[in-house]
Design a protein around this nucleic acid. Sequence first.
RNA 1: GGGGUGUUAGCUCAGCUGGUUCAGAGCACCUGCCUUACAAGCAGGGGGUCACUGGUUCGAAUCCAGUACGCCCCA
Length: 876
Amino acid sequence: MSISTKYNPKEVEKKWYDSWMERGFFHSEPNPNKEPYTIVIPPPNVTGVLHMGHMLNNTIQDVLIRRARMQGKEACWVPGTDHASIATEAKVVAMLKEKGINKSDLTREEFLKYAWEWKEKYGGIILEQLKKLGASCDWDRTRFTMEEDLSAAVIEVFVDLYRKGQIYRGVRMVNWDPQGQTALSDEEVIPKDTMAKMYHLKYEVVADGAEKTYLTVATSRPETIMADVAVAVNPNDERYTHLHGKSVRIPLLGKEIPVILDEYVSIEFGTGALKVTPAHDLNDYELGQKHRLPTIDILNNDGTLNEQAQLYVGQDRFEARRNIVKDLKEADLLAKIEEYASVLQTSERTGAVIEPRLSMQWWCKMDKMAKPALEAVMNDEIRLHPPKFKNMYRAWMENVHDWCISRQLWWGQQIPAYYLPDGSFVVAATAEEALKLARKESGNDNLQLSDLRQDEDVLDTWFSSWLWPISVFDGFKDPDNKDVLYYYPTNDLVTAPEILFFWVARMIMAGYEFRNELPFKNVYLTGIVRDAQGRKMSKSLGNSPDPLDLIDQYGADGVRAGMLFSSPAGNDLLFDEKLVEQGRNFSNKIWNAFRLIKGWEVDESLPFPNEVAVKWFESRFNEAFVQIEDHFSKFRISDALLAVYKLVWDDFCSSYLEMIKPAYQQPIDKQTLEATTAILEKVLKVLHPFMPFITEEIWHELKERKPKEYLIVAPWPKKDKFDKDIIEKMENVLNVVGTVRNIRNSKNIANSKQLDLYIKVMNQDNYEPFHSILSKLANLGEIRFVQENVEGAISFIVAGDEFFIPMEGNIDVAAERERLQKELEYTKGFLASVDKKLSNERFVSGAPEAVIANERKKKADAEAKIHAIEQSLASL
RNA sequence: GGGGUGUUAGCUCAGCUGGUUCAGAGCACCUGCCUUACAAGCAGGGGGUCACUGGUUCGAAUCCAGUACGCCCCA
């Protein structure tokens, strides 16, 4: 038989993924006899391609779902995508541009047709990529936030909340791209560091006195003075105390505006006097609201000045700036011009300088819905992992702002508000209902459908995804259907802390608002995947490896393990290809352990020499398993993997297999092979959630399996008793082995040369049963128990017992003396520190019994050790 | 500016309720091995005043306060 010495993932992965799919292992149906375990995927953008963040996130979900499936739960992982209105619309616009088509030349319907075509073509790519990773989603349940049923849910919710008074229209500042003539989301705005000019303008103080005085105001945008409605100063600024209650005149325009007082104004910045232009600056807008000031909008959509400005009407904002600076100079109203470093907001799409601009938007009230959502997290009904995010969550929820839910786009659910000819509007799920409502409310029965105009805007994508845990089970369309009743509330959600507020908090709100129940019980927050220099991975930086390349190179199992090695919950992961390499090496290690076992011939006549080794490993497995389960229960996935890793590599491969391994080309006895096969099966089980492909492959290679007997659905091990005594004894034995190896190494004794070992010990039972293990692992010849110290030997102490390796006279007495002397000093120092503790009256009376007993044991051990070392020194 | 969070080996991180032989992994490093499961490996080794300063305690990496530096969120 020849099995490659290197594990080859490529051949294996597709085979098993297809096989799992064919047999329907991923598919779930409500089963009253089983406990449901449900995860809904954080739906990736249809525009997205798999990046490292997805890899981490979905690996964790797959680990959780696979474990639950093996635990015999009805495991259901619902996949899907979200329509990502802004990103998708941008992609479609770009695609059309390449074809020479302008969005503005198309009707809404024509544009949406192109958008759907684009979605059908590219929208599923990311889900196909997840399959390469091994994600065991129930693909029959794949949903999309803009499909018919989910869109209907969005509209239903909008109408419902509007009727409840939770949705309203209001003015808000948006990022306006005058070139693209569209509003942009914050994510589409690119800040650029630039040198800007600060103009110091002289505002004449309105006073009864004859002599003109001025208040100097600094601004970077002098062309906006026509939209000024006040000048604000800090009430604590003594330079301006005399202006309290006064007013000033806008330069050139001569219009009188008040001087207002607000602590918001920074005394140090500029001249300490701030012109307030509510229509063209967000902070000014808030200031204006607070002081009940009017807003004057002087800009057209294309960035030119309108009639409101009175001056420079029709000129572009930058042209107007040049002209007004010239005019101000001539009128001697410009005190000075300063250069200063500032950040210019520009459009990602057109590069134009963004204009903050007021516009009418739709809003969803948050305060009422936030209350139960905050409580649920604070009282741990919903647990955040790690819990440090509770504080962040609370801070946000206690100061929650209303949610702007309208977007000036076409790709998305169109807002179901219908305007009447008189400008009033009605909200209804369909145009027909809207018409009925409009007739009723206006009292005008002659209104026709053609008289109504539906709001142009669409809803924010989050307004779809906040319903996700309910809508994927059709919980709006049919609130009592068997799926939603069975699977909702879901169990665990795995996502990034960046969207804790945008998404997680809102899902919790929606859960309570629409089903009166939480949407999930645990939220596992992953970190951000960064590169080795700590930079966030991004396409523009080009510092992100292509996950599919990685899978190609290292295997999906290797990549999965590599991602998890260094990703404690909530901490950023500094990705290094070394990690994935380690993951691949681990695959290879497992593969070779399997090769070893698979290669053995059985000789049925042989006795069973490995009872101790088998017993030990079984205990060791059970001990480790308790730990692994504990890690899982606390969502310490990385720790769980590490515990499995050590169990497999150190205990199973380095210790157990070395103990039972027959000499080269020798057969093995039947009992050992059977026990070892059973052990390997258990090991494969705990490995499977992390490394599904290689484990399924070995599972089938190990034995003939029945048609449905797959590892993916094999029963998860149960917690079992373990023999602490044998674990402790083996630890000592392995310690002895390690020391002997160390001595070989430091004395340059070849591994092939057998050594003898004499043991001076109180209780022979501690070593007697381990004879063959000792001699095999340390390559020993004679092992003998002795009563007296052995002359001409190197000695060492493990757990209070003394060991001697005779050196046939060629022992370096001086070096040996020095080594022992060093150890003696060290042990004496240690004893002194223990003694100090024990002689402290307050320690003895204050510390718990167990701690004191432990200190006493340390003291006794140290004293015994000192005695032994002194004896050895004397006998040298 | 407000809030959050972190600082432990060269690097990335564990260390859970303050107390198990005087702090643990992995990677990197050093030494020796191609010993037929595995060089993607084996055996062994070195490396830390737990950011700093104070406090609480019999006892602090762990709790508290302050300082310094870093990151995140909000404005």
